[in-house]
């Protein structure tokens, strides 16, 4: 025992005063206690994949919503003379980015052939000579707008529906659950298509159809969690004190529902983005000449064999968007789940 090395004096055997003891105790408070959200955020920050996903999303957001600054061309301006030009990035001389293309076995400068002069298109042009880069940025913006709108309905409708259903219980709950069950036995896409047919294809039709389908999962999860919380002591105490249901919802329920809500939101978003792209891809979504990642992929697919970049770039952006949201969602779920704490 190394500790014993120190000689013990008799003075050491006098009692410690209560004040000194409390001092002993306070010295020991080393790790500051974190709130639940801070704690989750700390864990999320340690998750490399989730942080990369978050950064990618932030960059995409900035590019898409600041597209006025980044767009090199008007996304809808056609220029038949300069159709189907390959990507050309000034100063980079790598095949695929230097404006050259393989034509019957030899590599030719497509820009020179089209007499494009000094013009360049970062990701090339489509069959109408529209700048693909600008169109992809525009399509990304549509996707992100859809994401925001879907989140809004998830929160405004799904969360409220879930809380009301779980909180009220009884008959109200039964009826509200029946409605959800019926909604669940119709494939979402079918509901969307029917609505879009009634409302005429376009952005607003897509928004309505996403609004009507996106909240269901949120409502179910929030209801389940509310049912669980409802009988917990702090809620019972608040009820016994006569606090109004509305106040309890905001003060006690919502903070405890926050992790469920955030996690589910992160899965609603990629679903909504997928459905917009899907509808636009099959031709009843965003209508021409506006760009959406779905329409861009559909356009590019027709020329995929000869001008693969026309489908690859929008497809990559759409996939990256989905992957980033899914990874971030996974990361959030892990960081909110107390079970995964080490």
């Amino acid at each position: 025992m190394a500790d014993n090395a120190k000689p013990i004096s008799t003075g050491d055997f006098k009692p410690v005063t209560a004040a000194d003891r409390s001092h002993l105790d306070s010295e020991k408070i080393s790790a500051p206690s974190l709130t639940f959200l801070q704690d989750s955020w700390r864990r999320l920050r340690k998750n490399k994949a989730a942080m990369i996903a978050l950064i990618v999303l932030i960059i995409l957001f900035i590019l898409a919503f600041g597209s006025g600054f980044f767009e090199t061309h008007n996304p809808n301006a056609t220029n038949p003379n300069l159709a189907n030009l390959p990507p050309k990035i000034p100063g980079i001389d790598i095949n695929g980015f230097n404006g050259t293309i393989m034509q019957s076995g030899t590599r030719v400068n497509a820009y020179a052939q089209a007499h494009a002069g000094n013009a360049y298109y970062l990701l090339g042009t489509d069959y109408l000579g529209r700048d693909l880069f600008s169109r992809i940025l525009y399509g990304t913006r549509i996707s992100l707008e859809i994401a925001l709108i879907a989140s809004f309905f998830d929160l405004a409708f799904g969360v409220v529906y879930g809380i009301v259903s779980g909180w009220m219980g009884g008959r109200v709950d039964t009826i509200m659950q029946r409605i959800i069950e019926i909604m669940l036995s119709i494939p979402n896409l079918v509901v969307m298509v029917l609505l879009i047919l009634v409302l005429k294809p376009g952005m607003s039709a897509i928004i309505y159809s996403i609004a009507i389908t996106s909240w269901i999962n949120m409502a179910r999860l929030v209801r389940a969690q509310t049912l669980e919380l409802k009988n917990q002591e702090f809620i019972l105490a608040a009820r016994a004190l006569g606090e109004s249901s509305l106040k309890i919802s905001f003060k006690h329920l919502l903070p405890n529902l926050s992790s469920v809500i955030i996690i589910n939101l992160m899965f609603t978003i990629p679903t909504a983005i997928f459905f917009e792209a899907f509808l636009s891809y099959i031709g009843i979504g965003i209508s021409a000449p506006q760009a959406s990642l779905g329409t861009l992929i559909n356009d590019g697919q027709k020329n995929f064999q000869f001008l693969p970049y026309q489908m690859w770039y929008p497809a990559i952006v759409l996939s990256v968007l989905m992957i980033a949201f899914n990874i971030l969602g996974d990361g959030l779920r892990d960081s909110f789940d107390p079970k995964s704490r080490e």
């Binding site: 055997f13 006098k14 009692p15 410690v16 000194d20 003891r21 002993l24």
Partner: peptide, 20 residues
């Protein structure tokens, strides 16, 4: 803690408890 782990909660703690 370096000394007796119970010292901080101990009404009967001695000086030595905080050290060893």
């Amino acid at each position: 803690p370096k000394g007796d782990a119970f010292a901080a909660r101990n009404k009967y703690a001695l000086e030595i408890d905080t050290k060893q």
